[in-house]
Amino acid sequence: MIEVIESAPLNAVQDLGRLGFRCFGIGRSGAMDRLALAAANALLGNAPDAAGIEAQLFPLVLRFTTDTLVAVTGADCGARLDGRLLPPFWAMPAKAGQELELSPPTDGLRGYVAVAGGIDVPVVLGSRSSALRDGFGGFQGRMLQSGDLLPIGPAPARTTRDAAGFGAASPWQALSRPACGDAEPGDITLRVVPAGEYEQFDEPSRAALWAQPWVVTTQSNRQGYRLQGDHALLRVRPLEMRSHGIVPGVVQVPPSGQPIIQLSDGNSAGGYPKIGVVIDADLWRVGQAAPGRRLRFVPCTPALAREAERELAGYLGTLRRQAGYLRRAAA
């Protein structure tokens, strides 16, 4: 078990999300930085769909009631195991009674904690993700609070070759940054496929989508990020849209002209015109973009999106293989 000693609100059990239940109006949920959670599972040798804890408000303090292997990935939350600072993207043995504490990250937004065997909450509609708005999935359909006891799934008893554990190159270090001509070093660049209503926007708006920075506002959360840009996005002739299904990454443009990126807990359907969609392979970057961060959009195609997806799969596959050499059976 993992005992939650202390948790700020909004921290919850997540996996890669829920698929196959959109016919009920149920969206994906799941980790905002799915790549970080997948990397944690790769470090531990877990199944790719094992559930972990998404920490987005701090502190998060956990106590292990059994010996296990733990991995902490995502934003560098200065994780400490019994007070000892862990490097970022790190996996190591945790002994029964030890406490893991995550603090607010200075860069990035969300940290992930995974354990060998995964967080073994019940699978609801094909996933262990928390669907907080609808109150199911995850741990009792809600965010974590102190006193919660999270079950750990079965896993072979394993430790690490180095007692202090081992780590991984973060996706920021290992993956190529989508090229964007005049982006500043701190800008997060995202590949966007133009969507159904792209052509309805006037030429200056279409140009501004790609040319100007979009600042993440404080009205940003797991449902979606509201962005702010100098030039509002306007349509030549406003048309009412019929409601349609929405996937995470859809860039909706309400009549104000300031776009919203729909994300993991976003509405599964909606009717604001969509100018583009951030590709799946770049959504993890959005999940780590804190308010005030500048986003830049780069045009993309389905073929390039698949290429980006392959790069992610390659990173995870290599990590999984190389991490396997650094774990061994526990004595």
């Binding site: 969507a195 349609h244 590709i279 999106a305």
Partner: peptide, 11 residues
Amino acid sequence: SLCGGSALLLE
């Protein structure tokens, strides 16, 4: 139409 690299919308 395309909804990103991996979703489609039939209208």
